[in-house]
Amino acid sequence: MEALIAYISYPIFLVAYIKGVQNAILVCRASPEAHLHPEAGRLSIFLAGVLDVVFLGRLFKVNKALWIGEWLFHLTFVLTLIGHLRFILYSPPAWMSTTVCIGKYAGILLPFTIVYILFVRIMNRERKHFISIRNIMLITHICFLGLTGVLMRYMIRPDIISVKHFMISLLALRPVMPPPETLFIIHYLLFLGLLLYIPSHIIGAPLVIIAARLRGERAKLLHYPGRETTYD
């Protein structure tokens, strides 16, 4: 079983990689958006767009109850991910000890943010179709991923040396047997599942959020009397 897990990793990595590359090719070969008004390309507007991405500013305006859950979810997810870098780096830099510490708390918070999001989504709406099955599956998946991580951290600790050895061996294309702990196997399989299930909005959404900020500025250009009406 352990050997199988090592070897199914590669096709899954490959599929995730091909999906990513295909998406990149699709976007890169398309024609660029033409003729943004120079006014809309100002650095300040771009930075405001970046802040919209970091703080999920548009969601804040729309649904504050959901915003706090989603923002914490995304933050804790990223921090947890960064905290996991120590498992794939042979010699982690010194600063990573801080991220490991932050990642530890983020990992605990992560499942709670998901439960909160589910609660807000299901309870805060009158109609049941306000959450898609796909999203329920995705965040439940991440919730179990987080829970198994927390259990491994505080209750059934696997041999960290073996875990790191396994991960580095995978990346070095010389896989060794993973640690035999069932909880780790489950956690790792859930991670592989997430790789396959990773939603396309992860890359697209931040760019679109920034573009939306630029669009908002362009919409101000139809003023009379005032500036030129050059949307394009």
């Binding site: 998406n23 699709l26 976007v27 958006e33 649904n63 796909r134 999203n135 890359i203 697209g204 573009a211």
Partner: peptide, 24 residues
């Protein structure tokens, strides 16, 4: 299906998180 779409439009199609806020 992407033949006549710009980069921005393809990204937009891919960017929907299916949060369904818009249904309201």
């Amino acid at each position: 299906f992407t033949k006549d779409l710009s980069r921005k439009e393809i990204l937009e199609i891919k960017a929907c998180t299916e949060c369904r806020e818009c249904l309201s």
